[in-house]
Amino acid sequence: MTTFTIDPRGPFSLYEQGVFGFGQNFDTRWDGVMRLAFCVDGYSAHAGVEVRQDGELLHCEMTGDADPAVVRRQVARVISADHDGHGFAAIGEQDPVIGALQRVRPGLRPPQFYSPYEAAVWSVLSARRPARQMAAVRDALSRAHGTVFTLAGRECPALPAPAQLLRVTEFPGIPELKLRRLHEVAKAALDGQLAIDRLTAMDPDDAMRDLQRLPGIGPFYSALVVIRACGLTDVLPTQEPKALDLVRRLYDLPATPSPQQLAVLAEPWRPYRTWATVLVRAAGARLLESRAAA
C-alpha cells in the first residue's frame, strides 16, 4: 500500500464531500473515510484509494499498481483539492449569499467524476433512466468486468477500463443501443479523445462541442463531462433550471434569471463560478429553509 498526503489549501471538508450525493456517489453514509475506486488517467490501470482528513491535511492510502504520482494528481482533482480554496472563501466575504451558503455547507468543494471517460460512461448509462437504477447497473458491470478493491472494510468496484469495456458484448440492464454507445466512448478514450489534458487545454465550449460527436452525448451531457469531470473551477452552468430557480430565490429576484442575467450576477464569483453554482445547488434549499424559519 502506498501513502501520500494532499494539502487542499484553504477551507475543505471531506465530510461535506462524502455526504454529497450525485452521479458518481449515491452512498452518502459517512464513517470518516472516502473510498475511491477508479480507472487511472490514461485508462489502462485501476486504483483504490482511502482518503481521511486530519486537520488541514488529507491522508491517502492507495492500492493498485498504478503510478502513485498520477493517482495523487487524479485524487486531488476528483475532490477539488487541486486548487487553492482561499480565493473561494474570499468571494464569500464579498457576496453575502455565497458567504451564507458557505456557512451552511462549510468547506464544501465540488466532488468530480473520476475522469471524462467515467463521466461519459455515466452519461450514456443514465440517459432517460432512473439514476439510482443505473448506478446499480454500473456497479454490477464494474464488479463483473472491472476491478474490485477492498477499501476500509468495504468492497468498492472500479469501472472497466476502455479495453475491458470493449470486450463486453451484452450485460443485464444495458440495452444493445446503449452498449454500442458505450463502446464508442471506450474507443474515444483509447484514441485519446477523452484524455484530461486534451480537454482541459481546450476552451470549455469547444470541448463540449467536441464531445457531442460521441453518440448519446448531447449538450447536457457534454456539459456534465466538461464541468464535473475536468476539474475546472470557472465554467458557469447556465442551463440548469434548479440552479436558476435557487438563484432567483436566494437573491430575491423578481423572475428566474436568463443565462445572460445569470452571467452578470455571477461575475463576482470569478474565478470560482463552477464552485459557486454547485454550492447554490447543494446548500440553497437549506439556506432558504433557515430563512423561512427565522
Rank of each mutant, 00 (worst) to 15 (best):
G92P: 06
V121F: 06
R281S: 14
C39S: 15
V185A: 04
F20Q: 14
A163S: 13
V78K: 07
N25T: 09
S13I: 02
P130S: 04
A263M: 07
H46M: 08
K178A: 13
P257T: 00
T169K: 11
P111A: 05
R35H: 10
G85R: 08
Q94M: 13
R286C: 10
L179T: 00
R128C: 13
L177E: 15
L166S: 06
D95S: 09
T63P: 10
G87C: 04
P175Q: 11
L214N: 04
F22M: 12
L58Q: 08
T274A: 05
P268Y: 00
T274G: 05
M34W: 14
D191R: 11
H145S: 08
D84T: 06
F22K: 12
L279E: 03
L232V: 03
K187M: 12
H83R: 08
A207N: 01
G23C: 07
H183K: 02
A207W: 03
I91F: 03
Q260H: 11
A119V: 00
V235T: 06
D41M: 09
A207F: 06
R128W: 11
S80K: 00
A195R: 12
L199A: 02
R143F: 13
L214V: 03
R132M: 12
Q102F: 08
D31H: 13
M62N: 09
L57Q: 15
D84L: 02
A188W: 04
D82C: 06
A66F: 01
A243Q: 13
V104H: 08
F12H: 04
G18M: 04
V19M: 02
Q164D: 07
T147H: 15
R132H: 14
